[in-house]
Design a binder for these strands. Structure first.
Lengths: 153, 153
DNA sequence: AATATAAGCGTACATACGTACGTATGACAA
DNA sequence: TTGTCATACGTACGTATGTACGCTTATATT
């Protein structure tokens, strides 16, 4: 039971019909790959953007050709995480999924697989890596205070 | 410039020569896939284990055949995260990479891609998901205390 | 108007991953 | 000793992913 999707993007992808349907009702989408996630983050960060803009931002860290970034964006759209419109010769992509959602799903998955569902060990790890500055620690402290309060009530 | 690896496992994999070399010197290995990570976690959890044992554990959550788990383990070994010995008819795998290392690499990668290198937002996210109990919060608080101390010195 | 630039779009290709079948063979039961 | 069962191991196959070429065409430049 498969459906074949071939929209404007002409990215050939097969999805299980179920996942297509649930995606149409924005319940779940095929997960983003690592590279796609990076691009998606930039999309959230700088808002609607052209391929060029994303490519420039991305080139700061990684090294991928324009065409590669183009493919990432096409696939991101095909998976339902973004939409695009074309103005003149230039296509502009904008995120259609909320970062919150993607982060939740991704992190949940990681926690499940790497920590058996326990998130505390991950927090522990992050704190011990000590790449969080004093202000960060301060904020975490405040967060915990607040949670404690709302919990004891 | 590629090297072709084909050990006992006969899993056909191509690695960039650089990564093969650095792996031989235990500096870096090809990353584990999501499923492989799940299996690796079980390996750490229950120590050296047979395919059957891992399969049983895994079947509790997921649903994969014996042969599938076998393939995961073969690939995990091929990537250098485990070794195996055979006793009679039964092959036993044991992890050869430390969880600490794998966790560090995996989490770093995630933080880079999804949060642009900032780990604070991830911590924030994890705390807000409030699936950490009071004891957990307590421990985090203690951790922060300790870090604050060692930092102010 | 002719030409150069840059972007879209289709397409490609090697490798990775999820998943599992089938066959051979060793271990154990009857 | 012969049959049953479990396991290893080779292999396979569809899809995903990383990466990018090349053709076409709209836009900008001379």
């Amino acid at each position: 039971m498969y459906a074949y999707i071939q929209e404007r993007t002409n990215v050939h992808m097969q999805f299980n019909l179920r996942s297509v349907l649930s995606w149409r009702f924005s319940v779940a989408r095929p997960a983003l790959s690592k590279s796609e996630m990076e691009v998606a983050r930039l999309l959230w960060e700088i808002g609607p953007a052209t391929v060029r803009e994303i490519h420039e931002r991305l080139s700061a860290d990684r090294d991928a050709t324009f065409a590669t970034v183009q493919t990432y964006l096409r696939r991101i759209e095909a998976k339902g995480y973004a939409t695009s419109t074309i103005q003149g010769r230039v296509r502009t992509y904008s995120a259609s999924a909320k970062p919150r959602t993607v982060i939740r799903d991704t992190v949940c998955d990681l926690v499940d697989r790497l920590f058996g569902g326990e998130s505390l060990p991950l927090v522990r790890h992050l704190l011990e890596q000590k790449n969080i500055d004093s202000e960060g620690l301060q904020e975490i402290r405040r967060l915990i205070e607040k949670m404690d309060e709302s919990r004891s009530k």
